[in-house]
Amino acid sequence: MKKLFFSTAVMVLAMIFIVACGGGEESAAEGDCSSEEVFCVGLVTDVGQIDDKSFNQSAWEGVQAAEAELGAQIDFVETKDATDYLANIDLFVEQNYDVIVTVGFALGEATAEAAAANPDIKFIGVDQFQVEPVGNLAGLIFNEDKAGYLAGALAAMLSDSGTIAAVLGTDLVPPVVAFKEGYEAGALSINPDINLISTYHPGGLDVAFTDPEWGASTAAQAMDQGADVIFGAGGITGNGALIEVAGSEGTFCIGVDTDQWETVPEAQPCLVSSAMKLITPGVLGLVTQAQEGSFPSGNFFGEVGLADFHEFDDQVSQDIKDTLSDIETGLGDGSISTGYSP
């Protein structure tokens, strides 16, 4: 027993020593966000990491662009537990930040609550649809169905077999449903007889976007059934599908959200394009408007589109490119409808 006491005491001392050695230097003094001159932008992620190569990262890059272009002072907090949304927003509120960006539809309620309580702070809610506009809150939302429509049209035009597939995160998340519906409508607009294999992840929110094995096996199954273009839309689950397709000769894959040529290099052998939500410029635009005093409220539609074809540029014929740009115009002016309504 004495031995245990002793070793514990030694450990406590060692710990104090280490901690004390680590002490000393404090980080450089930061500007006071409550002053007029200092423009502070904070970001709260959804449950997940800031460098998720997807959603949170794109929004954070928009905030980082605000640092570079507008001289903003920036910081972020990663949410670990969904019950902490409001507490994490409050960390920035207490420091009198000027703009607070919250990422993901799940934070919508907490963001609206914080916006109502702090009318002097501008809030940007990425992917948060606003039913009743609040003056200091802008929802940055995207027509995922339009991005999906373009991806579906591209897939249908690239397919030789007449069978295409989509490997999707859960239908609990509305943007995923929008991507899927748009994808199918776009494909059918090119080829009404096309065979569509769309599969949602059967698990709950906690696993649906983080299950690359399921994504890979579902993609393999679709290829067995003759699919030669596969759309992966569902975070890391979708990435698993893309990487699986990359190992199979003569099959194309299409990524989602960001240009996945950059974020999932393993998928480059098959990645012809990605159905993008341009989150980064959307966030930067809204932050800029907040600084200029022309902050919009209600819903603000960010741009969507297909990513660059990169090395597949010569495999995508001019005909296909022309058709895609016609569709893009049509979707823009409303002459083409994706048929999706949330």
């Binding site: 514990t8 710990m15 230097e25």
Partner: peptide
């Protein structure tokens, strides 16, 4: 003892990653 050892290992990891464990 487990808690103390863990905090200690945590402090070492923080030091290695360039953070200040005290802070």
């Amino acid at each position: 003892v487990a808690v103390i050892i863990s905090l200690l290992i945590g402090a070492i990891i923080l030091l290695i990653s360039g953070s200040n464990p005290l802070r």
